[in-house]
Nucleic acid binder design. Structure first.
Length: 480
DNA sequence: TGAAATGTTGGGGCG
DNA sequence: ACGCCCCAACATTTC
């Protein structure tokens, strides 16, 4: 039995990789990665610089790991829907195996490939197969808590598979087929330079080894104090594994079991709960493939969002005059990561204070997040905007000042990302416009003046009242 | 996995 | 001593 193991960018590992293990148990293994020109062209890749960097590092690490096991990752350019069936024939494989994706566009891709060759999909992106959890009425869950109860009642995630100890070499006739008869020549993993991207040293390093080190550091470090540290934007209290789960440098089962074994009590419950929110987002997108175009709550269709270039530029560049909002904006651009608390605050601000559509925020985050994942990012934005599954009610409007005071109490997060404010005393840091003029002068600030820090672009109380009135009118009207 | 407005209670200053 | 006011602290309601 000869198996083509089709790696597709969300499973970049050798440990707990069900398709790889299955292929190895069955005989000859041909690991493959396809460089789709849609993504791996400079003009497109530059749109996704952070994820591209993490992906390429992880891909290079995967190639090294497979080589270490005696195999080899074959990397070829082309469009998967055409290329995979062609390669399956040219390589004379008996079947193609891959890890299932949840996104609607990925399901369509897999449907087309499966129509042209024998494709077997394995679970691995989620703990339970998407679509497997149903309410008593047989419908998908729309609320997190019952989903979570159903998960605990019906699912006990299997232990992760270890990496194969050894893999068979790629058969010589497969290697000989490369570059002949319409089969592309194999290439090395592209470099960032090939794609015209400057390496960002502030990003997390990719690859399976770095991912394991992060998991270990979290469990040995802040994890036991997760309940008290998780909301702190200024402290490294979270696991920071989101990019690893997105690209599969760690499997979700590996993280689940490691955390379940290492933690106890509230820390265990809370952390596993966060993994279940991820699970919920993936299942939800599987069951409702239209979510990427349509809000979950129909009464939000046609919501009168506004477009304002000035406000948009201020929000994306980190010059709104609200320190926490600006810190989040600059952290996103700077290191491709934003603390979840900061994501919620800034998403609330964009949609409710600035009245700009969550879709624009969602797209901006998809562009810059290293961990940018369709299911997760869309669920988060719809939740924040108030239109998603189990979303917060529309009238919950975060106050960026009090949120900053509560979850960045010393101001270290703001000072790190908004250096103009570094010398403002903590007492006024989250609302510098309330500081006495003498204090501002002493901190070297000329609020609202060119070259200094801006005055708030909207007044919180005014913007809050405006959103509440608008939402009440629109959502009320939509119900009628 | 909010915030603000409104309501209630109780202590202390004061006439 | 007593009622009145003020207001902090806490609870409840509303958006």
């Amino acid at each position: 039995m000869r198996t083509l193991v089709w790696y597709r960018g969300k499973d970049l590992r050798v440990a707990d990789h069900a398709p790889l293990r299955d292929a190895a148990a069955a005989g000859e293994v041909v690991p493959l990665f396809v460089l789709d020109p849609y993504f791996f062209a400079p003009e497109r890749a530059r749109e996704l610089p952070h994820r591209m960097q993490f992906l390429l590092e992880s891909l290079t690490a995967l190639a090294a790991n497979l080589e270490h096991l005696g195999s080899r990752l074959i990397i070829v350019p082309g469009r998967a829907v055409d290329l995979i069936p062609r390669l399956a024939r040219a390589f004379r494989v008996d079947r193609v195996v891959a890890q299932r994706w949840c996104e609607p566009f990925a399901r369509e891709r897999d449907r087309r490939v499966a129509a042209a060759c024998k494709l077997e999909l394995f679970e691995g992106e989620t703990l339970a197969p998407p679509g497997s959890l149903r309410t008593g009425a047989g419908t998908p869950y729309g609320v997190f808590t019952p989903f979570s109860r159903a998960f605990y009642g019906n699912v006990s995630p299997a232990a992760p598979l270890s990496a194969p100890r050894k893999l068979p070499p790629v058969p010589p006739d497969v290697l000989a087929a490369l570059g002949r008869g319409g089969v592309p020549r194999a290439t090395a993993p592209p470099t960032l330079a090939d794609l015209g991207i400057t390496r960002n040293p502030a990003l997390q390093p990719g690859g399976e080894r770095a991912a394991r080190a992060r998991l270990k550091a979290f469990l040995a470090g802040p994890a036991p104090r997760y309940p008290e540290l998780r909301d702190r934007m200024d402290l490294p209290g979270t696991s920071r594994l989101s990019a690893d789960l997105k690209f599969g440098t760690l499997s979700i089962r590996t993280v689940w079991h490691a955390a379940a074994d290492a933690l106890s009590g509230d820390a265990r419950t809370r952390y596993l709960g966060e993994l279940l929110w991820r699970e919920f987002a993936h299942h939800t997108l599987w069951d409702r493939p239209t979510l990427l175009e349509q809000p979950f709550r129909p009464d939000f269709v046609g919501f009168p969002w506004r477009d304002d270039a000035t406000l948009w530029d201020a929000w994306t560049s980190g010059h709104t005059g609200y320190p926490v909002i600006d810190a989040a904006a600059r952290q996103l651009l700077g290191e491709g990561f934003v603390h979840n608390r900061a994501r919620m605050i800034t998403a609330s601000f964009l949609t409710k204070h600035l009245l700009i559509s969550f879709r624009r925020g969602e797209a901006h985050y998809m562009k810059w997040l290293t961990d940018g994942d369709w299911a997760q990012n869309d669920a988060g934005w719809q939740w924040s905007a108030g239109c998603g599954c189990d979303a917060q009610p529309y009238f919950r409007v975060f106050n960026p000042v009090t949120q900053g005071e509560r979850f960045d109490p010393e101001g270290a997060y703001v000072r790190r990302w908004v250096p103009e404010l570094a010398r403002v005393p903590t007492r006024w840091l989250h609302a510098p416009w309330t500081a006495p003029p003498l204090e501002l002068a002493a901190a070297g600030l000329r609020l609202g003046k060119a070259g200094s820090y801006p005055a708030p672009i909207v007044d919180h109380a005014t913007a809050r009242a405006r959103f509440l009135a608008l939402a009440k009118a629109h959502l009320g009207a939509a119900r009628r």
